[in-house]
Structure formats: structure tokens, C-alpha cells
Amino acid sequence: MQTNLAEELGYLVLRVDENKEVVRSYGDTSKYLLPKHFTINLEMLLPKKLAMVFNTLSNTVLKTNKKASLNRIKIKQADQLMMVNMMVSPMLIDRKSPKFFMVTFTEDKVIATAEHEGKDFDETGFQDEYTLNLEQELKEVKEKLNSVYEQLDASNENMQSFNEEMISANEEMQSTNEEMQSVNEELDTINSEYQLKNKELLEINDDLNNYFRSNVNGQLFINNDLLLMKFSPGTVKQINLLESDIGRPLSNITTNIKFETIIEDIKKVLRDGIVITKEIETNNGKWYQVMTMPYMRQSDQQNNGAIITFNDITELKNTQLNLDISNKML
């Protein structure tokens, strides 16, 4: 409805933002605007004279926030000469909203100019003012460009500094990788040595286990707290032992021998570092030579428990008894 009314009255009303771009139009645009595409900038859509006038009036409205107009602008449009009146008015919706202009174009068909609001078009004066406006806009553009260039320079310096830091970080990472590679090589060497040592320990452990299995004499390994740490298979003939007894106090384990001083002997060996040898008899009539000696630690030659060895001397003991009887008879 507004568009039809504007066309009937011969008006063209444009709503233009502060960037001089057309937001809305009412009326016949072909009468005053050039048939250009891909642009909404009003200065580019207007003939040269109208563009010059609009530039001047819009700058005035921006500065004063008051409407400005100019009459009888002579232009040639579609091979026809006509006089155009232009009025630019500020449109303020609220303080937070962007600024808009209302630009009104009307054809001046009246010869007398006194009836029209505003001044008549003086091409020479407007060209000078238009030139000044263009120079001012050019100056502002240059200042903005200089500011942009300064920001770009600062950004380039920051990027250069960042690149240097990245290069330094990469060098540090490369150095760290080399160190890690060296550490990995050392770890491989240590791991190889550890595997070799582990193999040797397994072989030693196999030797000890085979020694224990082949040793008919019994052996007990006791730590400083009088706890059973290990025993040979031959020991079960004298002491009732199970694998579950490892870690238990020796005083809690029942024996088949008449050896009441075994705990006291172990304590004395641990305290004095001496070797105690005794001959004892079992409940089934067998005799054993019991040797209690300190368990020496190779690293510092310190006592780390005791070893109790049971040697079967039954046959020797019986021979001695028979000799004693023969001697008495003689």
C-alpha cells in the first residue's frame, strides 16, 4: 500500500543505514536510480549529481542530526532531463539501535522555486563540498588503513615470536627425544643385564633346590626373629614340617628329637656368632649330630639368622657303644 501510494505521488522513499546501504524502498526506483546489480550502496546506485548531493546531505545529517534538502537538481535519466528534489532525514528508533536515514526523491515540475523547501542546487559549490567530503573520507580511510597496518605489524611480530617459540620448543622436544632414546638404550642394556642376572639367579636357585633334595641330612634356616624361612626335605625325619610352616616361629613346631635347648642355642649363636655342636637322640632311638651356626650375609658379613644341620650318626654311635661294652668286658 505504501509503495503504491508513493508511486502515485511520484515519490521515491528509501530507508538507508549509516553505511549508506539501502534497506527498504517505496516507489519507482527506475525513475531515479541506475539499473545496477549486486550492490545496495546508494551512492553507487545514483547518477553522479544525485550521488554527489546525497553524499553531502548525508554527511550534514550525520553531524547535525537534522534533516537537509536540496531542490532542482538537474539530471538526465533515460534520455530525459528533469529536476529532482532530494531530502535526507534522520531516523532514530532508540539510542541502542543503528542510525538510519530516510531519503526522499521527488521530481520538481514547478518553474518557481520559492514554493519548495530547501536550497536550489549549485553544482559548483557542491562539487567543492563533495571534493572536501571525499578528501575527508579518504583521510579517514587512510587512518583506518594505518591502524590496520599497525595491527598487522603487531600481529606479524607476535606470529614471528610465536614461531620462534615453536622452533625453540621443537628443538627442546628433539633434544628430549634424543635423551629419551639414550635412556631407552640404557634401559635396554639394564634390562639385558637384569635378564642375565635373573637367569643366573634361577640357575643358582635350581642348584640350591637340587642340593636340598639330594641332601639326606636335614637343614633349617632361621631368621633373627626365630622364624622358619626354609628347610631341606631331609629335615622332616626329625621335625614334623609342612610348607605352610614357613614363616612360623620355630617354638610352635613339634619335633621328634630330645633337644630342649634348641631355642637357647639359636639365640646364643645369633648373639655371639659362634658354632654350637651337640649330639642328640630322637624318640625312635636314632642319634644326630646337630650343628647350629650363624647365617652370614655376603654383602656386609653380618649375621642374618642361623642354620641348623642334622647329621645322622646312629651307626657311629652304635659302634661307639659296642666298643664301650667290649672295653668294659676286657
Rank of each mutant, 00 (worst) to 15 (best):
Q2T: 11
N4P: 00
E8K: 10
L9M: 15
D17C: 02
E18P: 07
N19S: 13
V22A: 06
V23E: 15
R24V: 08
S25H: 05
G27V: 04
D28R: 06
Y32P: 03
P35W: 08
K36F: 10
K36N: 06
F38D: 13
N41F: 13
L46W: 00
P47H: 01
K48E: 12
A51D: 04
M52P: 05
T56H: 03
T56G: 00
T56V: 11
S58E: 08
T60D: 11
V61K: 04
K63L: 09
K63C: 04
A68K: 05
S69L: 02
R72H: 09
I75Y: 01
Q77G: 05
A78S: 08
D79N: 14
L81W: 14
V88E: 07
V88R: 10
P90V: 10
P98I: 01
P98S: 04
F101R: 11
M102N: 10
T104I: 15
K109Y: 15
G118R: 04
G118Y: 01
T124N: 14
G125Y: 13
D128A: 13
L132Y: 10
E137M: 08
L138A: 15
V141G: 08
K142A: 09
S147A: 13
E150H: 15
E150K: 14
L152F: 13
N158H: 13
M159P: 03
M166W: 04
M166Y: 09
S168R: 14
A169D: 04
E172G: 11
M173S: 08
T176Q: 09
E179H: 07
E179I: 07
E179F: 04
M180D: 00
S182H: 12
T189H: 13
S192C: 06
K197T: 12
N198K: 07
K199W: 01
K199H: 07
K199P: 00
E200M: 13
E200S: 09
L202A: 13
I204N: 09
L208H: 10
L208C: 12
N210F: 01
Y211K: 03
R213Y: 14
G218L: 01
L220V: 00
L220F: 00
F221Y: 14
N223E: 05
N223V: 06
L226G: 00
L228Y: 11
K230I: 02
S232V: 02
T235W: 02
Q238T: 07
S244T: 07
S244I: 06
S244V: 07
D245L: 02
I246V: 10
G247S: 06
G247W: 05
S251R: 10
T255S: 12
K258P: 03
K258L: 15
K258E: 15
I262R: 08
I263V: 10
D265M: 06
V269N: 03
R271M: 06
R271Y: 07
K278C: 06
N283R: 09
N284I: 13
N284K: 09
N284P: 03
K286V: 05
W287D: 03
M291V: 03
T292V: 11
P294S: 05
S299P: 01
D300K: 04
I308M: 01
D312V: 05
D312A: 08
I313E: 01
T314D: 04
T314M: 03
E315C: 06
E315Y: 12
L316A: 13
L316S: 13
L321S: 03
N322P: 00
D324T: 07
S326Y: 06
